[in-house]
Amino acid sequence: MRPRPPAMRTKRRYILARILPYGATPDQKDVYLSVVEAATSLFGDAAVGLAQPAVVFCDGGYAVIRCRRGTEKDIATALATVTAIGVCRAALRAVAVSGTIHALKRRVRPIRPLSGDGEMTIEGRCFTMYRYPRQKVDLVEKSIKHQKLLFFTEPDLEER
């Protein structure tokens, strides 16, 4: 099938969203389902159907969400109401909006854990520490299911 001529194609916008917590690597389909669920419950089927949201990229702690031009504000608002991806608690923070994926990828700043990971025990539970820039420390419970997450800073750990 021949593609439509450029003037007849639907104009699109792309939203770059950061996935929280750091280190989360959700499946692209799970991100899509979360975004569509949040948008549908907020604006309804008709509005979301016209907005045509889709997740076109999901890697390195970021996701790129595509939508029709003119609906990007609504979709960005819907992203703010995402509270979970799959079964894990998560948040999507809209970082930038652009007309091309290329422009958004220039805004991606991968956040990788710093060296110095370790373990610590809080209230009888064993946690693995992941250190991030700006003295942030994420604690992930050592468990197979329902891992508890705690968000601390270096000074908080020094106090303990």
Binding site: L20, K73, A76, T77, A80, T81, T83, R89, R93, A94
Partner: peptide, 18 residues
């Protein structure tokens, strides 16, 4: 209650516009 529930000023504007 969590950093996952904090929202930016821009997101707050969008939510309040609802």
């Amino acid at each position: 209650c969590s950093i996952l529930e904090q929202r930016s000023v821009r997101e707050i504007r969008g939510l309040c516009a609802l």
